[in-house]
């Protein structure tokens, strides 16, 4: 399934395809200049989501203290690497405590450079914001949210592997527009 978008794009424009390969290659090199966007409330994160417009967003909730989350990060790195040239955006939202940004989050990102956009949600009133992500979510992490305009999907646990993540986001990607029939 992974080759699917590449094939699509080749059909659209071979030059763009080469460019995107080049771009996807260059992305991991920029990893060390990592910015962390702090969201004080879920409302601010929702504003960021609205900003994305038509772009498919894959938002993973994680934390440096969460073992299964950290183990799962490489598949989001891979998703970013393979799909961001086609307009998919991965955002890693850390739920590390506010006071832990300098102590844990920044040092973690220095030793584990990540290419996707990094955010930190520090809204303490979890009972209010968790249901705004998904009504069935109980707050255990990792958890992953996929958004494409008004379409939303939610995965309340970790992914077994990259393929499972790919299957999950598949209904939300529009990177392969069908050529118009003549």
């Amino acid at each position: 399934m992974a080759f699917f978008p590449y094939l699509c794009l080749m059909r659209l424009n071979p030059r763009l395809f080469l460019l995107s390969l080049l771009f996807s290659w260059s992305v991991p090199q920029m990893a060390h200049s990592q910015e962390i966007i702090v969201y004080d409330s879920i409302g601010q994160l929702e504003a960021r989501i609205r900003q994305a417009g038509d772009t498919t967003l894959v938002i993973n909730f994680w934390a440096t203290w969460c073992g299964p989350c950290v183990e799962e990060l490489p598949i989001f790195e891979e998703l970013h690497r393979r799909y961001s040239p086609f307009g998919l955006k991965v955002i890693l939202i850390s739920l590390d405590f506010k006071s832990q940004k300098a102590k844990r989050l920044i040092p973690f990102l220095q030793t584990h450079p990540l290419s996707p956009e990094i955010g930190q949600l520090v809204d303490p009133d979890a009972d209010s914001w968790i249901p705004r992500v998904d009504s069935l979510w109980d707050g255990a992490i990792p958890a992953t949210w996929v958004i494409q305009k008004d379409k939303r999907g939610f995965h309340p646990t970790y992914f077994k592997d990259f393929q499972e993540l790919e299957m999950f986001i598949q209904p939300f990607i529009r990177i392969c527009p069908r050529p118009a029939r003549r």
Binding site: W65, C66, G67, P68, L95, A126, D127, I130, P131, W137, D138, G139, A140, I141, P142, T157
Partner: peptide
Amino acid sequence: APDFTRAVGCTIK
């Protein structure tokens, strides 16, 4: 009231 709330936490291993 409330009789049910949500919270962030570590998943049970």
